[in-house]
Amino acid sequence: MDAFTTPLLAGTATGALLLIAALGLALTFGQMGVINMAHGEFLMAGAYTTYLTQQVVTNTDLSIIVALPAAFLVAGALGLLLEVAIIQWMYRRPLDTLLVTVGVSLLLQQLAKDVFGAQGDPVHTPGWLDGNIDVFGYHWPYRQMFTILLAVGALAALGALLKQTSYGRRIRATVQNRDLAETVGVSTRVVDRVTFFVGSGLAGVGGVAVSLISGTNPNLGTTYIISAFLVVVAGGLGQLQGTVIAAFAVGIVTAFLTDWFNSSMAQVLTFALVVIFLQIRPQGLFTVRTRGLA
C-alpha cells in the first residue's frame, strides 16, 4: 500500500504546485498568446518574499499568512511592470515574447543571485504546518496538504473572478474574440494588464508554497517552468479545466515514475509521455473550437 499511496499523495502535492504555476501561464498564454518564460522567476519572487517576510515578522506562525498576499502583490507588480515595459509592444509577435521573456528571466535570476547569494536561504515552516498525518503508512506532511489547499483556493478564486465579476466577463470576452470585445467597448489594454497582474500574482502565491518545501533558490524558477509549460501544452488553451487535469496528471505520473526509476528518468519519460499524448490530442485535452486557420 505504501508504494502506492506515497507517490500518489506526494504527486498530488507536486501537481497542486504545478497547477498554481500553470494557471497564470495558461491565463496569459490563452488570452494574449504571450509565452512568459519569466513566469518561473515570479515563482522565485514569491519564495523570496516569504523569506523576507520572515525577517520582518519573526513569528513564523504568522509570517506565512502575511507572506501570501505580499507574494501575490510583489509577483503581480513584477508582472505588471513586465507587461507595461516590454510585452505591450509585442502583442503582434507572440513567438518573440518567448525570447524577450527568456532575457528577463536571465536578468531576474542573476539579480536574485547578486542580492540574496547563490546558495539560497531557508524558510522556516510555521508550527501549525510542521507535522504529518499517517495515511496508509505514508507520513503525509501538512506542508503538502497546505499546497493542495492553496491550489484549490487559488483555482476557486480565479474561477470566481472569471465567472462572477465584470472583469472576468471582460477577460472571457477578450479571450473569445478580441476585436469584437473591443467593438463593444471593452478596453482590452486594461484587461490584458489585469490578467497579467493576476496571472503573475498567482505565481507568487505558488512561490510561497515552494519556499515551504525547498526554501529559496535563485534557480528555483527554472525547476518548475518547463513542467508548468508542459502542463499548459497538454491541458490545451483557453480552458482552465484542461490545465487542472493536466497539472495533477503530470504531478502524479512524475511521482510514480520517480518512485519506479529515479527523478531524472522520470523527467525524461514525462516528456516522452507528453509528446505521445500530443500525438493523440495535438491541441491538448480541451480546446476552444474556432473557425480560424492558424
Binding site: 516590454i86 518573440d96 524577450v100 532575457g103 536571465l106 536578468l107 542573476q110
Partner: peptide
C-alpha cells in the same frame, strides 16, 4: 548573464 539577458530584450524588441 546581465548582458545576455539585455541582449535578448534589446535585440528582439
Amino acid at each position: 548573464t546581465y548582458f545576455l539577458g539585455l541582449l535578448f530584450i534589446v535585440v528582439i524588441l
